[in-house]
Design a protein around this nucleic acid. Structure first.
Lengths: 138, 138
DNA sequence: GTACGTGCAAATGATTTGCGTTAAG
DNA sequence: CTTAACGCAAATCATTTGCACGTAC
């Protein structure tokens, strides 16, 4: 059960995602993996991202209607600009542990992971007020 | 500034969303509002959902590539099935307050809201093991 | 009165699907 | 071997856009 067939395509996708913190889209994963497996199809990448996310090997984050993925390694949190949709990682073991402690109290649930999203306006979208906003990158 | 023009369309959309905890899609909002304003266009609903979310009057949650919306009232958290994408609300003032306290420590950011997503498998997707999963609804 | 919002239809972009072929276990 | 995965092209679905007309302030 829970068998996973490690095809070349899946191995390369996981390899590319490993340690990657840029939240790549399917398009970006496709472009990267194509360098190793030139004949890979974009549909295969789509199918595998979905498959791997369902298996819990990677995490899906949806930003402004586009799926992005990250390896399911160290738990972390996101700062998301509600206007431009830029996303920034930040770590807080404190918060992660606190959340999981709360999750344990929830009856009848299988919780595998948690993450907290913080919403606001990034520096660029906020406009003038420099001292209170976070900065979008890339 | 930050003027919001309260057109009939926007009023009806906000009215439908008020107190609604079902995380409706644009399609669902459109169907509901059409009962009041039969001539409303789906494009108008799309435009307004985007507009209202940017203004911070509603919150967008993206699940499995589809945008869903909820009124931006009481802060709460989500339980999301990584397989079927079903989403369940749950409240924890404790967690919300804790998160916001952490957010205050972050320099140079304007944080307006936060929410924590818990990921796992719901009862249906987990299959046999009844005692450990949460139940999808709707 | 004027800028902004609306409705419609067409365009776009992301994601999925059908199907004959290929490869993992 | 046999079933699941692949590659490709076509299909689908969510969301956006251009434009002429209407309306909130």
């Amino acid at each position: 059960m829970a068998q996973i067939k490690y095809t070349n395509q899946r191995v390369e996708i996981l390899d590319f995602l490993k340690g990657n913190t840029t939240h790549p889209t399917v398009e970006q994963v496709y472009e990267a993996v194509k360098k190793k497996l030139s004949r890979i199809s974009k549909a295969t990448v789509y199918q595998n991202m979905k498959f791997l996310a369902e298996k819990g090997l990677i995490q899906e984050v949806n930003i402004k209607g586009v799926s992005r993925f990250e390896p399911n390694l160290e738990p972390h949190h996101h700062l998301i600009c509600r206007k431009c949709g830029k996303i920034f990682d930040f770590e807080s073991k404190e918060l992660t542990e606190y959340s999981l402690r709360i999750a344990k109290k929830l009856k009848g649930m299988t919780i595998e992971a948690s993450n907290t999203n913080f919403y606001g306006l990034c520096k660029k979208c906020k406009g003038g007020n420099k001292s209170f906003a976070f900065e979008p990158q890339n």
